[in-house]
Nucleic acid binder design. Structure first.
Lengths: 238, 238
DNA sequence: TGTACATCAGTGAACGCGCGTTCACTGATGTAC
DNA sequence: TGTACATCAGTGAACGCGCGTTCACTGATGTAC
């Protein structure tokens, strides 16, 4: 910060690398014991350091946990954004489906990181402000697909038989479209997208947390079917 | 078991009561520390016993956890069944909505028990067979509403524009309707119900685990709206 | 280029804590004659 | 009804373990003159 143009010293490079390695080892340990079981001493042991040395890199266990949480949100957010960008712009339904499948693929490949961010909150851990923006990437990307479709005139209008939005809900939706600058997106379409978003993660959590064992496992077919129904629900034309 | 008609001795009554009290105290401690933090020693302390005494009642910590899990599944299952039974039989959509709202009410009143059963799995804990039946009560009750509607001819037929079910999915659905004896329920209606079930808990988990903070919190209006959309999705006529 | 000093990474010992589970035991409750 | 014995609940000490965090320290890396 004090001299941003200067090339990094050996010490600075070593510090950056170890900071990353600690995080990676911690991520590996999530698999074995979950967020609650993440132990600074175990991380240090695995890295061949003494546990107190970690305090040069992370001021406390919670800060390390926060770094993992932010990374996980960023990873799933990036995967989502990429999937959307890779699908044809003029076909919002395909973009939607691509995003959903990319999210599922990431979640199945990283179930413990998924549980870290979408599972039960870690008791005693208070998520700091810094997690909010990364956490928003997925839903923002998803409703972005709807907003683009709306701007292109490719979004199905609200069913005339559907009742108008409840007042409180309309206000929340309007506040959110304002905040995100999605002026083209009607409030009821946003609500449809948000409900589809909760649907997506509900199914994913059930799959990963074992609620479908013995009924719809493997869940590939159920997921594919749900993605289509979600697209309908969100107003994306077939 | 050996003499079921005989009236319980004082020792037996004391045992039954303490077994219950231990469970209740453990339930109370879930609030403070979550499933991972549940400590036999803390439970014993609170009950004025020595920790080794608990082993007369539960063979291990995991068994106590299992008892809590079963109780939680049974509680939310019973609440669901009651809500359905209390709503008019001829109005499946009302029954559905009543069940959803009862589930939400229970979850909001017992967030830690909710997290215990629908949150991330406790690392190292393997749910025994005995949890399966209680876990099934909610989904069975929900699809029961659909099955009754189907038997009454009150279920919307599958949209003609909707593609037929994928083969694997149809097989899973048929196996499940067989298993549950719901012969009147078409496979695609079951799938719709299951997807609605995942939707319901997805929204609930997001609400309880803090994903809606800053956007759709309080979530009452969003939830009510989602319940209606789920009923549509499940084929229940308005 | 060489030296004196400041910065920082990593060490090792310690503090104070909590945990699940086992085991030999005491003393009360229940049972069979 | 009374006694002898078996069952069982609860005790207290112990085993062996792990944890997050602090602190005074050594020795290496970097900086300024």
């Amino acid at each position: 910060m004090t001299a941003p143009t200067r090339t990094a010293t050996a010490r600075e490079r070593a510090r950056a690398e170890l900071t990353r390695e600690i995080k990676e080892e911690a991520r590996r340990q999530l698999v074995a014991a979950g967020a609650d079981g993440l132990s600074l001493r175990a991380v240090a042991r695995e890295l061949g350091m003494v546990s107190s040395a970690l305090y040069r890199y992370y001021p406390s266990r919670d800060d390390l946990l926060t770094a993992l949480i932010i990374d996980a949100y960023d990873a799933i957010g990036e995967v989502t954004e990429r999937a959307i960008a890779a699908a044809p712009a003029g076909r919002p339904r395909e973009r939607w489906a691509a995003a959903c499948h990319a999210i599922r693929d990431w979640a199945r490949a990283h179930p413990h990181e998924y549980a870290l961010i979408y599972g039960s909150p870690v008791p005693g851990y208070q998520a700091p402000q810094a997690t909010i923006a990364p956490a928003a990437r997925v839903p923002v990307a998803l409703v972005g697909v709807l907003a683009q479709a709306a701007a292109d005139g490719a979004l199905a209008p609200a069913s005339p038989s559907a009742p108008p939005l409840d007042g409180a809900l309309a206000a929340q939706a309007a506040a959110l479209t304002d905040l995100l600058g999605l002026t083209a997106l009607p409030p009821d379409a946003l609500v449809g997208g948000v409900i589809a978003w909760t649907q997506l993660f509900g199914l994913l959590s059930f799959e990963l947390f074992g609620q479908l064992v013995g009924s719809f496992e493997p869940a590939d077919a159920l997921f594919a079917c749900a993605v289509e129904r979600m697209a309908d629900l969100a107003g994306l034309p077939g």
